[in-house]
């Protein structure tokens, strides 16, 4: 299904987003560190027949101009909340990837009325690794497991954001105590982990799921950290099933 570019005045700037689908409940895709809406393109297209899909570029990333100082996780969540209200994209199923999961959790805790359900694809920061440097090593190792086409999409968006902003946002993500927020997420949440994810270990994914009051875990075969790139159709199927579930407890498993 075709996606179009939209521009919305929100969060003190002009926010660019990719949108598709004209029927169904709103679904918001939240990108991770340094990247933007382009890497959600295939997942968004797969979900568009059933949802009104939105993939915004958060301030400072993609085509959305941001302030000179890099925003931290909470500020990005506030920007996302402001955009969601302005673009009338709530109450939504919010799907985050990588640092986008941290933003989604912050959003679910501070603005619960905006988040109907949450999906955390590769929830960072995995604290089983000792420090920032080991996160970088893991990221590099994970890079070899991602589909090759991802490299150029990600590299271009990193260039758009600028190295300074990417580094400062990374440090902000490292400092964010997302682990303490998990127990306060009231919305039903699904944790999705790619089987070959080197950045987020299976142990960490299990810990996150247990910390969430209404959490479920799904493992995607053949995908690494950005499952939306490696397995967009499978991810879309998982998200659709989860969003349409009647009960509050999500069913876990391995599709």
């Amino acid at each position: 299904m075709e996606l179009t570019s939209r521009w919305t005045a929100a969060a003190g700037t002009l926010v660019h987003s990719r949108a598709g689908g004209d029927a169904g409940p709103p679904l918001v895709l939240v990108h991770g560190l340094g990247v933007a809406s382009p890497y959600w393109e295939r997942t968004a297209a797969a979900l568009a027949p059933w949802f009104r899909v939105h993939a915004p570029d958060l301030p400072g990333f993609g085509h959305t101009i941001g302030p000179r100082e890099a925003l931290d996780v909470h500020q990005l969540a506030e920007a996302l909340a402001d955009w969601m209200r302005t673009a009338d994209a709530w109450p939504a199923v919010v799907v985050g990837n990588s640092m986008g999961c941290q933003i989604t959790v912050d959003l679910a805790v501070c603005h619960p009325e905006l988040v109907r359900r949450a999906v955390l694809v590769g929830p960072t920061i995995d604290r089983t690794a000792p420090g920032a440097l080991s996160q970088v090593f893991r990221l590099v190792r994970n890079g070899f497991r991602e589909p090759p086409r991802q490299f150029w999409i990600v590299a271009r968006d990193y260039a758009r954001a600028g190295l300074g902003r990417v580094l400062r946002t990374f440090l902000a993500a490292m400092a964010e105590p997302t682990e303490s927020w998990y127990p306060r997420v009231s919305a039903p949440t699904l944790v999705v982990r790619g089987e070959r994810d080197a950045l987020v270990t299976a142990e960490w994914a299990a810990r996150v799921t247990n910390a969430l009051p209404h959490g479920g875990l799904v493992t995607l075969r053949g995908a690494a950290h950005t499952a939306n790139q490696a397995a967009p159709e499978a991810l879309a199927r998982v998200v659709r099933v989860f969003a349409e579930e009647q009960s509050a407890e999500p069913a876990g498993g391995t599709p």
Partner: peptide, 8 residues
């Protein structure tokens, strides 16, 4: 600024 959010 009101309608487009910024003025560059």
């Amino acid at each position: 600024v009101e309608r487009l959010g910024r003025l560059d």
